[in-house]
Design a protein around this nucleic acid. Structure first.
Lengths: 199, 199
DNA sequence: CGATCATGTACAGCGCCTTGACAGCGGAGA
DNA sequence: TCTCCGCTGTCAAGGCGCTGTACATGATCG
């Protein structure tokens, strides 16, 4: 049983992340005021600093939590897939389609105020990329036990990078983007399944 | 916006009430140990005393919260009723039927260990009766604005007392009990709607 | 009758939120 | 360009509430 104080602290973090996630799409990173986050969460401004340290860390945490919500969806898509390739396809389609419906992502990609959030998906997107790639690699290996850890990691990072790229700079529909990803990677997956990474 | 500390305190109360409500059906009032409640909620025993004072008050609070859950259901039944009488009928049926499915109520009414909970519905049931009657009276007046406050209160208390009676000592099905209540009160309601309480 | 157990009370310790203050810094306007 | 203003980030003091412990009391059981 988790202690009450632990749950309290967790709910505090959630409340702060909720508040920041609500406010970020409106004014972007620059428009986000720590005092507003605190007020919306019903705590003092100092408490926000005690919990996250500074505005950049708070924003990064919001990004990571948003990403983890997507990862949950991706996990579900994988569970119902027939093959590794099909799972990847489903996951890519899901990611691209649902990301555009997400308020925060949509603001980062499409609005003037939110454009200073874009680095979270690109230049400062390493935490998200790593988190997503780690999960994906794990999923891949569960699906295809013959896959070596290195092969899974490489494959996962590639898929995530391609997905993010198609998300940030779309040139086709989500389904077409997924087609492209799977088409490119299909031979590689077959190869890895047999022999592991070739260098 | 409610402050974070307020929400924390509310969630503490909820956690304690959940814990007590889980434990009460197993051992009844006598078998409920404050230390177990505290442990299940993840707090210290002293915190339970700070919040509720003593075991009787904690148990009373559990009873009141359980009652309020029923009141929510009753409220919904009333919203979809065609007439005041039909609303009362629906509410009585709902109360009796769902009370027997409730773990806590079922334990109080039917089990050996839980029989020391019975006073909460009878001799020590005044808080529940008042709460239920107050809500019912309010509903009645919304339904039939011509009803005076006194008439609504009298009617409501009568319905609640009859419902509790049929619940504690069932001699017919829930529907038959509701039939009896509405049959008895139908003329009174017609009378009140026109002239108010006769003394 | 003595041991055990649970209730109820008291109190020191401590973590954490709040309040208030202040320095630094960058933007807006005169 | 200079000044004002707002926001960030930091610090110290204060208080509230949970924790842990101890103890008295009463009930139950062997």
């Amino acid at each position: 049983m988790t202690s009450f104080t632990d749950r309290t602290k967790a709910s505090l973090r959630e409340a702060l992340l909720d508040a920041a996630a609500d406010l970020l799409p409106e004014g972007g990173y620059a428009g986000l005021r720590m005092a507003d986050v605190a007020a919306r969460a019903g705590v003092s401004r100092q408490t926000v600093y005690n919990e996250f340290g500074n505005k950049a860390a708070l924003t990064q945490a919001v990004a990571l939590r948003t990403a983890s919500e997507f990862l949950d969806g991706i996990r579900q898509r994988f569970e119902t897939a027939d093959s590794l390739l099909a799972g990847i396809h489903h996951a890519v389609v899901y990611t691209i389609e649902h990301a555009r419906e997400n308020r925060l992502v949509a603001a980062a990609l499409g609005t003037e105020a939110g454009e200073d959030l874009l680095p979270l998906l690109t230049t400062k997107g390493e935490p998200i990329l790593t988190a997503a790639a780690d999960l994906a690699a794990e999923q891949y290996r569960e699906f295809e036990p013959g896959l070596s850890a290195e092969a899974a990691a490489l494959l996962a990072e590639t898929v995530v990078r391609l997905s993010l790229s198609h998300l940030v700079l779309p040139t086709h529909s989500a389904a077409e983007a997924a087609d492209a990803v799977t088409a490119v990677l299909a031979p590689t997956i077959r190869q890895f399944g047999h022999n592991g990474v070739k260098r």
